[in-house]
Amino acid sequence: MEERGGFRKDTVDRLLRLHFRDARTRVNAEAQLLMAELLKVFVREAAARAARQAQAEDLEKVDTEQLEKVLPQLVCGCGPE
């Protein structure tokens, strides 16, 4: 089930719980899996966009600068709308 390179359910659960205000808040297994997938998509999207930006600048290596350029549009709309 868990693809290599993805987030483990336990890790996701731990990360989410770290930020819940109410200690009684729980996440069921399916939601954990979905959240793991979401996190993977987010990481991949960030990496792919930054890589594309480096490509556009004719660079062979992605640096913080390329990430910074794609960051506003990457995070814009990730929050509640």
């Binding site: 966009r49 350029k69 794609v70 990730c78 709308e81």
Partner: peptide, 21 residues
């Protein structure tokens, strides 16, 4: 810092731009 980059949609991979974006 790169605000002059932001007046056109940058390429996306799997996730398209949101309305807010």
């Amino acid at each position: 810092e790169w605000s002059i980059w932001q007046n056109q949609p940058l390429p996306t991979s799997l996730v398209g731009h949101s309305d807010l974006c």
